[in-house]
Structure formats: C-alpha cells, structure tokens
Design a protein around this nucleic acid. Structure first.
Length: 573
RNA sequence: CGGGGCGUGGCUCAGCCUGGUAGAGCGUUCGGUUCGGGACCGAAAGGUCGGCGGUCCAAAUCCGCCCGCCCCGACCA
C-alpha cells in the first residue's frame, strides 16, 4: 500500500479526552476515531490490526476444534425472557422497539441466541460436541465508558460457546479452549498470564482470565513465582499454615477502655490520633447479605474482598450497607463502628484472630475502644479469609511470598454448565435414551481490547511498537526525499519488488519533509523500516531499522532480502 | 445515578471574571526555498463561539433551560 493512497490521519497532539497511552496512540496514529461516548470508528490501520488479531483467533479456534458462525446483532425480547436475563441484566442491556413496538436488544453477549440455534438442530449425543464462535460487534451500555477501546460501549468481541454431553466432555473442551487461548495470545506477541478467576454466580471450579501484564491494568493479579499459582485478586486465596487460635491462650489484658476520638473516622485518622499502627485497629463493616446484615471484621490496613465474603457466607448477593443501615443497627455512623456489643452476626477475617489488644469503634459517634480482645469482648460466628491478598502474603499452595502485578483482562473462559440449557429447555437424547440438558462452556476475547492492551504494553515516548503478528503492516518503506529522482525511483521499484515477494508493506511516498516521515514512522510503530536516503545516494546502502530495539542494519539491494528475512524471523513470537 | 469540569476553525487552547472589532500555535490550500527527526519565507481559506430562550442599545462573555463530552465515586466503617 502506498501512503498517499490510503487514509492515515496522524496527529501531533492527542485530543483532550484521551487518558491512557493506548487511547492517545490509537488516536494519534489514526487507527480509531470517536463517534460518540464509547463508540469508535476503525480506520484503515485500525481495522487491519483488528483483522490480524481476528485471524490469529480463527486459527486458534480451528486448532481447538471450534467453528465460526455469525449471529444476529439484534435480538428479540422473548429469548431474553426465556433465560430470565431481560429482567436480570440491568441497564447495560440496550433495549429498543421496532415499528410494531416490539422490544429488542443489541446483544451484549449471545448465550440465548446460540442456545436457541443449537436446541433446534442438535438432538442426539452423537452430534456432540458442538463448539461455535463468532467475531462480531457487541453493545453494552456501560455506565461509564472510558479509556478508548479498553472499555467502550460498542466493541468487537470473539465469543464462543460449547455444548457437550456431560461434565467430563465439557472439561475436555474447556481444556482445549484454554490451550487455544494460550496459543492465541502468544501469537499476538503479548506478555500475558492465565489466572484463576472467580466464577461468579455460575459456579463450577473452572474459570480463567487471560491477563495482559501492564502497569496500567485495571485488574490486580496475585501470583507466586515459586509454584506458578496465579489468580485474580478477587479470587486469590491466602495461605495460612495453622489456624490461629493463639489469642485464646494468651493472658487476658485489661478490659476495653472507651476513648474519645472526635471527628476521627478513617483508620488513618484514628491511627494517627491514638498513635497506634493501623494493623492494631479492627475495622468493622456492615454488609447486607441476601437481605440480612452481618458485620465483617478486618485488620485496619486490609481491604475487604466482597466475593470471598459472599462465598464464606454462602450468600447470593452481598453488598456494603449504607450509612443509614449502619446507624440503625449500631447507633453510630460509619467510622465509629465496632464489634463490641453488636447484635448482628460477626464474620472475622482470619487475621483478626491474632489481634489481642485492638482498637475498634465504640458504636457511638466520636468514640473508640482500646484493648479490645476477640473471644472475650466479642465473639465472631464465622472465621474466614475475607480480605484481598497483598504482596508478601503466603501462597495458598507453597506458602512462599505472593507478588501482585497488574493486568488487562483480554480473555475469559468458563464453564456455564446447564444454566442456560435448563432455563431454555435445550436438551438432547443421551446414550441411555433419556433427554438431558447440554453442558455448556463460554469463551470470550475482547478483540479491540487486545489491540489496546498490546499498545499499552508495547510503546515508547515516540509511539506504538507493534508486535510483528498484529501490526497493520509489517514493513514500512521510506523514501527520504521524493523529489530526488534516484531515491524516488529506487524506492518505487523496491516497493514493487517487496510487494511481489509477498511482504506486508506500506510505502511512505508522500512528498513531505523527512522529519515528518520519520516521526510518523515511530508513531505508527511498524516493526521494520527500510529507509532510502542520502546513504543510498552516496554509498548505495539501505538502512533497516527495527522499531522495537532501535537497532539499525545496513544492507545493499543485493543483501536486502536476506537481511529482511532474518530480521523478520527474529521478531516472530 | 451522585459530585466536579469542559464545549470558541480539523487538533490543542487563549478570550468570559470586568458585555462593545473573534484570536494564537499546529494542520490545510497556493507560490517559492529546503530535504536524515514534525523545516523556512510569503500569501490565503476556514468559526451558527454546543443549542434554545432571556437580560441589555449591544452577549462567546451575564441569567435560565436543554444537549454533548470528560473526570471522580464500596475499600470511610
């Protein structure tokens, strides 16, 4: 492709609303433009990269035994009512009516459609497994779209769904998809990690998220370099080698003392005011669990993990209570709560059991207790790991210190089981002749997000550094001065040759200053760059620059192909 | 949804407080000089100042309503 024949509107400055680096660079390099909040157009370079990622996904899916389909974008309400999600999905589901005032949605995900499709045509276990996927736009009416392609409302996603006759077969399919995902992200040239994830309300023990490692990632990943354990912080367990009942055997100290702490609400404020470390404070949070209330206790410097709490309580729905509920239950506002004298059920984090003389809220505004002791002054009914892991906590498998890194979720696979097949009455006849529901799995990849994540991970001050496999073009040819006939002619014929050789090449044939071409080349981030310039005029040499390393290799026209081949090879994943 | 901010040429922004001629840089067009890191000289095009209404002799500027966009929002207990 010649630069002058395509549409690559590069920009010196990013628009003001671009916050993160990938958003800025996608915009400045002319890969995307915004139409509306969270809604983007893909320009020629953007769609090329998206297509390369899509093709890698297709290859990976093929290897994993899945077939491509294309499902409708617009879905009628009754299917969503069958699954119960018309009510359950909430405001993220875009709903609208056609001219007959019939309700529809633009699919944010396609379980209903795929189940409807398969139940109509798959009637026997002999037809299983069925594993179908599509790569298509989706729409989720996010409360707050942000970060460009990272969290848009309309976005391109690969979503796949598998149907198996039983758990054992579903597990095999799951494993194939797990392997396929590893292959796909590796082919995309990403540094990533598959981590164990919470399965949410779906249940089952298999769920993995594929996280691209990047400091700007929205998710925290807990990992152990000693044994390879890795999990989303929502899920990550903490290793405790012995259940600490130490507090019970320690000698009892003096009874709790009520101290005034006027205007001190946060752990930080109380800690500073009373001159005690945050780790000696027990913070008390009132939580609404399935309609009832419980008090969750944590060391002052820890964060509550609602998912762990939900699992510990065996509850379906857990959320923090509002200030009004706190007031009603304890007689104090949030900020002065404590477990002493509380009437609600108490759930204590395992760490709390080792605290023998703690500071807690006194359930009167502006007062705290000191010298509070678990077992004597209050009695939790449940002890559980309910906090977020932090760096240095023990690995649940090998007890070595855990590390925390950040990641961007680009893929998620999990077992759906029979949740949808039961609700939507999707059954087949098994070997025993009895009808039974399909055992399903579901597998997603954010395609646009993968592009954004790659840029988030691979960039420098000058611009994007594309991995070879997903770059819009692999190779850029630059003629330093198009007005110089020697240079222009050489570059022109070189372009034709390389094109014939099958290179994925773009030729910057614009008649503009060298500075602009070179700046644009850095910004656009194609992996390899050939420069035809004064060195060619004077010495007959061409320059090949590797964007990733900055390495410059010179070649003659004779050695160019060989040099390109080996450089290209060095950039393969 | 709650809180905050913004909306002026394609992009980044000034002007608004204190009403009176709409500005700069980048980009674009034309001519010329340049040609290895967003070059230089000269000329030019391009703006319903987000929309509607109000106040006023006069509104980008003051007031009201609306629209759009952006940021923050359990972890305070």
């Amino acid at each position: 492709m010649k630069f002058t024949q395509t549409f690559i509107p590069t920009l010196k400055e990013a628009p003001r609303d671009a916050e993160i680096i990938s958003h800025k660079l996608l915009f400045r390099a002319g890969l995307i433009r915004k139409l509306s909040s969270g809604i983007y157009s893909y320009l020629p370079l953007g769609i090329r990269s998206i297509q390369k990622i899509s093709n890698i996904i297709r290859e990976g899916m093929k290897r994993g035994g899945a077939q491509e389909v294309l499902l409708p974008l617009v879905i009628q309400k009754d299917l969503w009512e069958e699954s119960g999600r018309w009510q359950a999905y909430g405001k993220e589901l875009l709903r609208f009516q056609d001219r007959h005032e019939k309700w529809f949605t633009i699919g944010p995900t396609h379980e209903e459609v795929i189940v409807d499709l398969v139940r109509g045509d798959v009637k026997s276990y002999r037809q299983l497994p069925v594993n179908l996927y599509q790569i298509a736009p989706k729409f989720r009416d996010e409360i707050r779209p942000r970060f460009g392609l990272m969290r848009g409302r309309e976005f391109i996603m690969k979503d796949g769904y598998s149907f198996d006759m039983d758990e054992a077969h579903a597990n095999v399919t799951y494993q194939k998809m797990y392997d396929a995902y590893n292959w796909i992200f590796q082919q995309c040239g990403l540094r990533f990690r598959a981590v164990e994830a919470d399965t949410g309300t779906i249940g089952g023990k298999f769920s993995h998220e594929f996280m691209v490692l990047a400091n700007t990632g929205e998710e925290a990943i807990v990992s152990c370099s000693a044994c390879g354990y890795a999990a989303n912080v929502e899920k990550a367990e903490i290793g405790y080698q012995e259940s600490a009942a130490a507090a019970d055997s320690a000698p009892a100290g003096p009874a709790p003392v009520l101290v005034p702490t006027p205007g001190k609400h946060t752990v930080g404020e109380v800690s500073a005011f009373l001159q005690v470390p945050a780790s000696d404070i027990i913070k008390t949070m009132i939580v609404k669990a399935d309609g009832g209330f419980v008090a969750a206790l944590l060391r002052g410097d820890r964060e509550l993990n609602l998912i762990k709490l939900k699992n510990a309580l065996n509850a379906d729905d857990v959320q923090l209570a509002g200030d009004a509920d706190c007031m009603k239950l304890t007689g104090a506002h949030a900020g002065s709560l404590g477990p002493v004298g509380l009437s609600v059920r108490i759930v204590a984090d395992l760490e709390v059991t080792t605290m023998q003389s703690a500071v807690t809220g006194a359930n009167q505004d502006g007062h705290h207790y000191t010298g509070v002791r678990q077992g004597r002054d209050f009695q939790p009914s449940v002890f559980a790991d309910i906090r977020n892991a932090v760096a240095g906590d023990a690995c649940p498998h090998c007890f070595k210190p855990l590390e925390i890194t950040r990641g961007i979720e680009v893929g998620h696979i999990f077992k759906l089981g029979t949740k949808y097949s039961r609700k939507m009455n999707a059954e087949f006849l098994g070997e025993n002749g009895a009808p039974q529901p399909f055992v399903m799995g579901c597998y997603g990849i954010g395609v646009g997000r993968t592009l954004a994540a790659s840029i988030e991970q691979n960039n420098d001050k000058d611009g994007i550094i594309f991995p070879l496999t997903i770059a819009p073009y692999e190779l850029e040819l630059i003629a330093i001065n198009m007005k110089d006939p020697d240079i222009a002619d050489t570059a022109g014929s070189l372009y034709e040759e390389l094109l014939r050789d099958g290179y994925d090449i773009i030729f910057d044939d614009r008649d503009i200053s060298p500075g602009m071409k070179l700046k644009d080349a850095d910004l656009l981030g194609f992996p390899l760059r050939i420069i035809v310039g004064t060195k060619f005029k004077n010495q007959g040499t061409l320059e090949i620059k590797v964007r990733k390393t900055g390495e410059v290799v010179t070649a003659t026209r004779e050695t160019l192909r060989e040099t390109l081949l080996s450089l290209r090879k060095s950039l393969l994943p």
